[in-house]
Design a binder for these strands. Structure first.
Lengths: 177, 177
DNA sequence: CAGTATCCTGTCCGATACTG
DNA sequence: CAGTATCGGACAGGATACTG
């Protein structure tokens, strides 16, 4: 019953991963959001920063507004002009963007990084990591945390996690390749 | 000169966000990775869990192996059979998956969640948040942290962050919609 | 400046059929 | 069981042209 219903039918999936991907799955969506986090609000700013075609930008902005991630509001009235600002919901995606960017950076030496996250006051680079809010422990790649069926899990989802064997995450013996 | 070169040319982008999206941008890629984190390693397991077509699964697995996120290795030899296990690089994507799933869950009441991340021993649900590893402070939607040009930033990237105005993240006055 | 409309291409993806 | 090969549809996205 989702309106857009992207190419694979994710509506009938209950995985929260799919839910998120459904909203930010299009490449440009993420990049536009990133622009928004950088303080940009206007059509031409997005267009210039991203090099996106105007037609695509129109489409993506509409989706973002429809999804409630951006709010479109007039900022002048003679010829009416709109700007696009993050909603609370949109802002809540920040950790996702940060995590995504952090992974990209993690594959580079510090001096190779072209975009970093910094403390707004000190200007010092921050190291984004994902932790458990209660314990502060890193979730990283440790085996200490696993996905599991939640309260609202369907039978299918429960079946998925029925396997739960002793070895949670099989890994390749050596590094990559 | 990237081999796959997905539809929009991301190779010429230096944004770490784009880099990540280039690797996990395809819907199935993320979901396959998620399966791998859940301990699944075999073709038919992926296929059954995800409901993906075999041809697509083949393609995606190949990409994942090529990208160094999964390793394909034989687990039996009479008829040779392969399994797909996470490499170190692949495992390093876990925080990204977790962050993505966490956002999906954040939009639901706890009792509505069908998939959660739990402590493997206690079984207690964990609350994934993104923090600065050095200070432990949450990166959330606060204005305390902003993206900035890194050491390797191109002129374009520097230009992008030259604006840095007093208000880092414009927000909608009220909540959403 | 801030878009909309139209055409076109690439490719993601499912469906189906086939193989050792 | 673990895939490969091929077909076709849907749609993201670029390019271009047009509007107030």
């Amino acid at each position: 019953m989702v309106t857009v219903a992207s190419r694979i039918r994710l509506e009938d999936r209950e995985c929260p991963l799919s839910t998120t991907v459904e909203h930010v799955g299009e490449w440009w969506t993420l990049l536009i959001l990133h622009d928004a986090f950088d303080g940009y609000t206007r059509f031409d700013q997005f267009q210039e920063n991203l090099g996106i075609s105007s037609s695509m930008l129109t489409t993506r902005l509409k989706t973002l507004v429809t999804d409630g991630l951006l709010e479109r509001r007039p900022y002048q009235t003679n010829p009416v002009r709109h700007e696009y600002v993050l909603t609370d919901l949109g802002r809540s995606l920040r950790p996702v963007i940060v995590a995504l960017a952090a992974w990209g950076n993690s594959r580079l030496e510090p001096h190779e990084r072209s975009m970093i996250l910094v403390d707004a006051e000190s200007g010092e680079e921050v190291q984004p990591v994902v932790v458990d809010a209660r314990t502060g422990r890193r979730l990283d790649d440790s085996h200490a945390y696993v996905f599991a069926a939640g309260p609202a899990a369907s039978d299918a989802m429960r079946g998925r996690y029925a396997h739960r064997r002793p070895v949670p995450v099989p890994v390749a013996p050596t590094a990559g390749t």
